[in-house]
Write a protein that binds this DNA or RNA. Structure first.
Lengths: 230, 230
DNA sequence: TACATAATACGATATTCATCTAAGTATGGA
DNA sequence: TCCATACTTAGATGAATATCGTATTATGTA
């Protein structure tokens, strides 16, 4: 028997359609109740409960109890990154309806990746920040340059505060639809929350989809000279 | 139901222990017979045949028939890269014996990754070539610099010939033990074969393990100033 | 031809495990 | 106190599939 990393340990958890659906739903980074996840995965609550217990045991998700509700979320951004990588290696879903096709297009355009922005828009923004010399790519991380420090400060991002968080600061996160990297980590999250605060983007309930508002379009254009194609 | 890439399609193939063992064995990049693979995965030939058929159907492996033997190999280096990425995301194997422990240490030191070198040695060599300014990292590729062109030519590597091959030229391949990148692709393969030709490294039958010979140790030292710790 | 080896095909078995029904626990509100 | 809701647990069921014994095909060798 050849010694090798225990591939099955990870893949067995993801190989099951219902669990995959639950995890895909949780990739929006939000908390969801067990019933919500059951509905999203098209299974009965008992079955969802069974899968959620298994995922929790394996430290893939965590649970917070409030009253009679149990709120589930991905355990951390490392799990989210892993899932995003596996997605980037997997075939695109079979599209069976016009509705699914348009949903897929929207996700490819802009979506959440756990707690930051992903999709074409995110990759464009990341590239633009690189070209402007605000960040530099170094292996799996982006590094904020001196110019970048000024830029992010001007934009109202507290780099010092973010860097104190117990997580990757500016992870180069793999984008499954664009098959390249976008800015993740604490900095990616900081920007994401700033965009929300400014009303430039909006999340939708029970979906990873992100909508760029009209303020967002002009905002991104002013900030980066970036034209949003929708 | 949330639209997302079909994770299960890929992971279901890897979730089964016997198939995982077969694929791990094939990561040495060599052809293996069905019986060999059955033995390596500790299953009967019929069972191996069943799994091999399934893997072939899904274009994970290819088969060449010679006489009464069937030789199986990974389909291409894209499959190998995918497997290596999944391995880098998976937990290290549980080590149950001194023998396994020493085998793991050897693999972490130097092993084949499909058709090129992986492990600590490979990562060190890659870093050294980067520091010497022979190659530069650009996203998922390494780029050969002008200085690098001279260097590789001196070392007897035919860059023009390699670049004509219908595959990635110098892929930045993920190393599961070192959790960083080493040089893969056609250039990685070219160097690997040159090391073999020079007698610097030796492969072992039915193992991914690579042995650095004494010529290799002095060779790598002369070429890169790199001291091999064994 | 006869026999040994490599591999696959087929059928039976066993195991794993996702799913559901039914029942039970916990919580909040009337 | 009673009921509705959210969720889990337990047990039964069924489907998928990995495995192996047996048989068959293909090839090489004596």
């Amino acid at each position: 028997m050849i010694i090798h990393p225990n591939i099955s340990a990870l893949t067995a958890l993801l190989a099951e359609k219902s669990r995959a659906a639950i995890l895909a739903a949780l990739m929006d980074g939000k908390f969801h109740t067990a019933s919500e996840l059951a509905y999203m995965a098209s299974i009965k609550p008992q079955t969802a409960s069974f899968h959620l217990a298994k995922l929790e045991e394996n430290n893939i998700i965590i649970c917070e109890k409030h009253g009679r509700f149990r709120y589930f979320r991905l355990a951390n951004d490392e799990v989210a990154n892993t899932l995003e990588i596996i997605m980037s290696l997997s075939p695109l879903p079979e599209v069976r309806s016009l509705n699914q096709s348009s949903q897929l297009k929207k996700l490819e355009h802009a979506r959440t990746c756990y707690d930051h922005l992903a999709g074409r828009v995110s990759v464009n923004l990341t590239n633009t920040m690189q070209q402007a010399g605000y960040i530099e790519r170094n292996n799996k991380e982006f590094i904020v340059t001196a110019a970048g420090e000024l830029f992010f400060k001007d934009f109202g991002i507290d780099l010092v505060g973010l860097s104190k968080k117990r997580r990757s600061f500016s992870h180069a996160c793999l984008d499954w639809s664009e098959r390249t990297h976008h800015l993740g980590g604490a900095l990616g999250n900081g920007l994401f929350e700033k965009y929300i605060e400014l009303g430039w983007i909006e999340t939708k309930a029970n979906s990873r989809e992100i909508v760029i508002t009209s303020q967002g379009k002009s905002g991104f254009k002013d900030l980066f000279g970036l034209e949003m194609q929708i």
